[in-house]
Amino acid sequence: MTAADTMNRPDPAQIAEILQGAVDPHVHSGPSIAPRALDHLDLARDLSQAGFAAVVTKDHDYSGVTCAELIRAHNPDLATRVYSGIVLNNVVGGLNPYAVEHTAAMGGKIVWLPTLAAENHLKWEKSSGWQHPASTQKIRPASAVPLADEQGRLRPELLDILDVCASTGLALASGHIHVSETKVVFAEAKRRGVERLIFTHPEDIVGATFDDTLEIANMGAYVEHSLAFFLEGSKFRNRSTEELGAFIDLVGPERTILCSDLGQVGTLTPLQGFRQAVGDCLGLGYGAAAIRSMVAGNAAAVIGLED
């Protein structure tokens, strides 16, 4: 190894310092019907040792708010606060305002619009070859959860959910719906007083261009990028480090959230993902303050940790 190679390597101490107070708002720990590499408690212990402030667990099939409450209540020594949310897929009844209200009442932080049950996702599956790891083993395949009626009007249940988000402060994330649907739903959400909006991984599944992404950011949404798609060593990688930089530059670090979207078997752990991502961002030329916004401050703001 040459002296130049050593100088270009990310400094582990600097990476560790930047990650103090970090927040992962989108992570797939278990228990889950799909195989997971670690459970919610193991994740919290892992992130606590690294100084993370909070994590929001996400499962496509259930609201994890009761698990999060148990972990918080019985592990007061953990530095990382564990939260969860709800994804509006078939298992929770799709567009179910009652389930969203319960999630908010139990301290949930995010409601995701349909993912595996999004009409857009089901179309994408057919061309991508991807399939939910458990769909043919334990549960029936997903069926579409439409957001609008045949006349294109947003369904009353969805409007009810937007009102719940507005009144409780839940963040609304776009999930796997198409970018064209995201624009319509987010515009209505804003009209109804929803203040916390998250555009989920424009880099994959949702059909977004750079222009789309910028338009949604200009609506006041944070743009959340899944590190799983960008990191060398991730089995989900389909984008380069340079492309991550282009996405960040598009809306600026002040509107960008980096989440792991990890926790699956056979790939990087969420903590490994964050450490590698911080090193990649340093290599791209971003300063410590900008990176800290993307891995900590922006996520903390959108889930209400600063309230």
Rank of each mutant, 00 (worst) to 15 (best):
S128Q: 09
T6Y: 03
R72T: 09
N90W: 01
E181S: 13
P202F: 10
G85S: 11
N89H: 05
G129K: 09
E306I: 09
G51F: 12
A118W: 02
I198V: 15
I18R: 06
D212W: 06
D307M: 00
S32R: 00
P25M: 15
F236M: 12
S240R: 12
L305N: 05
S293C: 15
G207V: 03
I15R: 13
L197A: 01
F236I: 00
D149L: 05
P253D: 10
Q131V: 15
Q137D: 15
A217P: 01
G93L: 01
R196Q: 14
P35V: 10
G107T: 08
A105W: 05
A13W: 07
A228L: 08
L271A: 10
I205A: 11
T269W: 04
I177A: 01
L244G: 08
C165I: 12
A246G: 06
D46H: 07
P35S: 09
L43M: 12
N89T: 04
N298I: 05
L172W: 06
R45E: 11
D46R: 14
H28V: 08
I33H: 03
L170V: 11
V302H: 07
V87W: 04
S128D: 02
L159I: 13
N96S: 09
S226G: 06
E242V: 12
R72Y: 03
D149A: 07
G152D: 13
G21I: 00
H26A: 04
G285K: 13
G129D: 10
E203S: 14
I291R: 03
L250F: 07
G283R: 11
A34D: 09
R191F: 03
T136D: 07
T66H: 08
P10N: 03
M294S: 00
I15N: 09
V65M: 07
G193R: 14
F274G: 03
Q272M: 08
S32G: 06
V184S: 09
A301Q: 15
T256C: 01
L262S: 06
K109T: 02
Q264A: 11
L250M: 13
G233I: 00
Y222G: 03
F230K: 04
T115Y: 03
L43I: 06
D261T: 09
V111N: 01
A22L: 14
I248Q: 02
F247I: 02
V206M: 11
M7I: 12
L197S: 00
V56H: 13
R36F: 08
F52N: 14
G220P: 10
V223K: 08
D59Y: 06
T6I: 04
G175K: 07
G266F: 14
S143R: 01
P12S: 12
A34R: 06
A217H: 04
E125F: 07
F247D: 04
G21P: 10
S260G: 07
S63R: 10
R45D: 00
Q20F: 01
H74Y: 00
G94H: 09
G51C: 14
V23P: 11
V265P: 01
A4D: 10
G108Q: 08
V302M: 05
I248D: 04
G108F: 02
E254Q: 11
R9A: 15
L43Q: 11
A288Y: 03
V194Q: 13
T182H: 08
A117I: 01
R153T: 03
G297R: 14
V27I: 15
L113P: 05
K109Q: 09
D163F: 02
L70F: 13
C67L: 11
I257H: 05
H28Q: 08
H132E: 09
T213H: 11
